[in-house]
């Protein structure tokens, strides 16, 4: 079934979240989250809206601060000081629902910005890297265009290349296909599948269950800020244990 996960993840732990909790005022957004992701593992995170899945992955690169527990990424303890946050962000790439390309920069410049400014790469090296990765997401010929001149699917592929230019060890995807017109979803998913095939550690918040079946090593289902169930995709889809999971799958798969 899951043809890609045969490239088995190693035993080395890439991300560990232990007892992570987060509140917005009195509202508890995350409740005692314990997740461990091995190097090369692909996780699909799903759940109803407001279940905390976006918040969870946004904690991993500290776009959201968490108040309790511990997060480690590639051996770095993610504290609240700038130093550890910077260190983690250099290792973690993120792709957003709304692409968030920088409108005033060309595609190429979008990809070169962070390698030059955050990693201190020279211009030639950054450009080489950017062109190579644009090639890989099959959009090299658009390098000199501005984001507004591209379709949504193309923009999202550029966003993936931009994140990869940092040579991250982990990629986070926050509903990468939700803002796309249906005919563009496939090109983005194909890019993600390629990436998975190459052994990238990935955590994807998505409702694309076909993608989960094909790529994920594990599917994690969240509701009300807590992890309800996690299982390999075959088991998750064929034999969900919890009532809430069954209800969610019923709604999303339309039966």
């Amino acid at each position: 079934m899951s043809d890609i996960s045969t490239t088995k993840a190693s035993a080395e732990t890439m991300i560990s979240m232990t007892g992570v909790a987060k509140w917005y005022g009195a509202f508890q957004a995350l409740n005692d989250i314990n997740v461990s992701v091995r190097k090369g593992e692909k996780i699909v995170l799903c759940g109803p809206s407001g279940s905390g899945k976006s918040t969870l992955i946004r904690c991993i690169n500290h776009l959201e601060a968490y108040q309790q527990g511990e997060i480690r990424v590639g051996g770095i303890l993610l504290g609240h000081q700038a130093k550890s946050i910077d260190a983690v962000r250099r290792e973690v790439g993120m792709v957003f629902q709304q692409f968030n390309l920088f409108p005033h920069l060309t595609v190429l410049q979008n990809c070169m910005l962070a390698p030059m400014r955050a990693l201190g790469l020279g211009k030639a090296e950054a450009e080489g890297r950017a062109r190579q990765l644009l090639e890989r997401v099959k959009i090299a010929e658009q390098a000199e265009k501005y984001p507004a001149q591209l379709s949504g699917g193309q923009q999202q592929r550029v966003a993936i290349a931009r994140a990869l230019c940092m040579r991250p060890q982990v990629m986070l995807f926050d509903e990468p296909t939700s803002a796309l017109d249906p005919e563009m979803v496939k090109e983005v998913l194909d890019t993600m599948i390629d990436l998975a095939r190459e052994g990238m550690t990935m955590i994807c918040v998505t409702h694309e269950m076909g993608f989960a079946r094909q790529v994920a090593d594990r599917v994690i289902f969240m509701a009300s800020g807590a992890i309800v169930e996690e299982a390999p995709p075959v088991e998750f889809f064929s034999n969900p244990k919890h009532e809430r999971t069954r209800k969610f799958l019923g709604e999303i798969l339309g039966h």
Binding site: L63, R90, M94, Q98, P103, L113, A114, R117, A118, A163
Partner: peptide, 27 residues
């Protein structure tokens, strides 16, 4: 400027000042 622009910059490992100077300022 949308919050997403700032977040994208931060997620790429840029500092706050860099995000302001390189991403927010011109648009």
């Amino acid at each position: 400027i949308s919050k997403g622009q700032v977040e994208a910059g931060l997620a790429l490992g840029l500092h706050k000042a860099q995000v302001f100077r390189l991403i927010v300022l011109k648009p």
